[in-house]
Design a protein around this nucleic acid. Structure first.
Lengths: 66, 66
DNA sequence: ACAAAATGTAAAGTTTGTTTTACATTTTAA
DNA sequence: TTAAAATGTAAAACAAACTTTACATTTTGT
């Protein structure tokens, strides 16, 4: 799975810490997600999508092998 | 978070085992999701949404306290 | 040029998602 | 009515998502 969270965060002019606070996770979690270090939970992607104002499918995309 | 996976599965006339196979997880995982026993990963909700043919946000809904 | 802010890396510990296995119960089909 | 199919429950084990803490590096703003 890949995502455009970093791009959207920049578009909204938010720091990682800002976004982390808005979705109630640690900054490290945002870093991990943006760098695809691990797969976030459904709750988290729904929250991020809500903050960004776009559907989950637009931010996160399945890849072969997922 | 709550979901309507069970309803959509019934609408498509799939068993839990059918859906489990389509999204490459165990049947127990489908049971756990339908009964909100635990929160699925982003990859899994994307896969289920794809099989069902509806956006993630339509199948899964954030609740207070999430 | 320099300090503050932002981002990045790492690690250890905790929590949770998922698996497998087994059996019980309910529902469905004939 | 009965057997097969589907669903449900439980538990143990494992992998991974997440946290906190700390420090390093890069970027930004003045």
């Amino acid at each position: 799975m890949k995502n455009i969270v970093k791009v959207e965060r920049a578009r909204m002019n938010l720091t990682q810490a800002d976004l982390a606070e808005k979705v109630s996770v640690s900054r490290q979690t945002i870093i991990a997600i943006e760098s695809a270090k691990y797969v976030p939970s459904a709750i988290l992607v729904l929250k991020i999508a809500k903050v960004v104002g776009k559907p989950v499918e637009e931010l996160f995309e399945l890849e072969d092998g997922d």
